[in-house]
Design a protein around this nucleic acid. Structure first.
Ligand SMILES: [Mn+2]
Ligand SMILES: [Mn+2]
Ligand SMILES: [Mn+2]
Ligand SMILES: [Mn+2]
Lengths: 222, 222
DNA sequence: TTTATTTTTTAGTCTAATCTAAAAATATTT
DNA sequence: AAATATTTTTAGATTAGACTAAAAAATAAA
């Protein structure tokens, strides 16, 4: 059961993470093109890299049939996600970064290779279960605590909810939310839903606000 | 005066740092071989890299005449040292790392590219002036506070001193110091110096200890 | 001041990670 | 079921950073 240690490069880690994120949407096999789009690279580069990852037994790969993570690859991917999200918590909680500023720095920090560092950081942050965008943080064994949440676009008119996460965590979207005074924990009541374009009228902190379907389908509530 | 931003790679940063550290010993020009030894690489690789750094105006380079940092290169090098040392402080002060465990992780963390991150970290740590090995931390403008200290090997017999730093910060040496209960701030009195091999007899925390010349010439005192 | 030694540079090769262009396989329409 | 379109893979090229071996320059010794 003692697994041999396989070195994974910075670039390989990025591929693993992207395959992991795409896996939930297409569990039987992730497409080359989908990976290429997500990584902002070309399909031919993806094919090359997939072969390398298959060689290292991080993914299962059949030509033309898409790619999926092995148990080993899944754990590696979860550890990168764990690091990314823990660093995001650190940046917000300890260094006073705002939630729209942390992603790019975390993209770099997630590649620092030290298990001790990340476990000590976890403890220093008091073992947070979620990152600043409401995404769950895997523990050191890769276990993820499932929380139930739904998209605001699926909410019931008349009910009260609390904002618990964002689907899109681009700084553009987050800055829009800042402007609208929407943050994690913000309570909101759904007043109306326009049948024509699904625009919502929502009461937030005493104010009535109009939120487009695009916005509503990127906000998680509970 | 607005300098154009020049991207410096991970590898280039390591070279700049090494050239910086070697510059104090040979201010007129650092040798190719010295860099190669420090970087654990070959002289031919160093020549290639020096050309690239000269292209980017980070170093001055004349064939066969050694290399020196430009103003720009000096500032870049100091910023890497700043990051390295601030991260070391973070690891020791906040994450409970021991001083012999921080160097390798800091070698990775020093390459994270975010001025905001490093200045926020500096503030979070209360603007420390020294790292866990007693080395000064450059401020955000690259200014370094000079402290006067001397090597234990140059100490006067009969006098009292305090340990203020290490010249060699390898974990092997630091672990030796741990074993001898020598840390930054430890007081010591020089009892005797053997003329034959310069071995010292030193009183530390009530105990008499024998320190070889090699040890003494890697410990800074004040 | 020649000769020998050491240092540094050049020339050519290698690998990782990318790209473009073209071929092959798969999927979608008629 | 053919024809067409899309996706994926291959082939070949490029760049950064490293290497070895050999040539050139600088330094030290005789
Ligand atoms: Mn993120
Ligand atoms: Mn996040
Ligand atoms: Mn260090
Ligand atoms: Mn240090």
């Amino acid at each position: 059961m003692t697994e041999k240690y396989i070195f994974v490069t910075h670039s390989e880690e990025n591929y693993l993470k992207v395959i992991y994120h795409l896996s939930s949407a297409s569990p039987k096999g992730v497409n080359t093109n989908a990976i290429a789009a997500m990584m902002d690279t070309k399909a031919s580069s993806v094919t090359d890299m997939i072969k390398k990852l298959a060689e290292k037994e991080m993914v299962l790969y059949q030509k033309y049939q898409g790619v999926s993570l092995t148990e080993q690859g899944l754990l590696a991917a979860k550890m990168i996600v764990r690091k990314h999200r823990l660093w995001e918590v650190f940046l917000v909680e300890k260094l006073d970064f705002s939630w729209d500023e942390v992603h790019d720095v975390a993209e770099e920090l997630e590649h620092i290779k030290s298990e001790k560092l990340i476990n000590k950081l976890d403890a220093f942050l008091n073992f947070p279960s979620e990152d600043p965008h409401g995404d769950p943080i895997p523990n050191q064994y890769g276990e993820i605590q499932k929380t139930d949440k739904q998209l605001l676009s699926e909410a019931t008119v008349g009910k009260n909810y609390i904002c618990v996460g964002v689907k899109d965590s681009s700084s553009a979207f987050l800055q829009y939310l800042n402007k609208q005074k929407i943050a994690l924990g913000t309570p909101m009541k759904i007043l109306e839903k326009e049948t024509f374009d699904q625009t919502l009228l929502v009461e937030i902190e005493g104010e009535d606000k109009v939120l487009s379907h695009k916005i509503a389908s990127n906000l998680y509530i509970n």
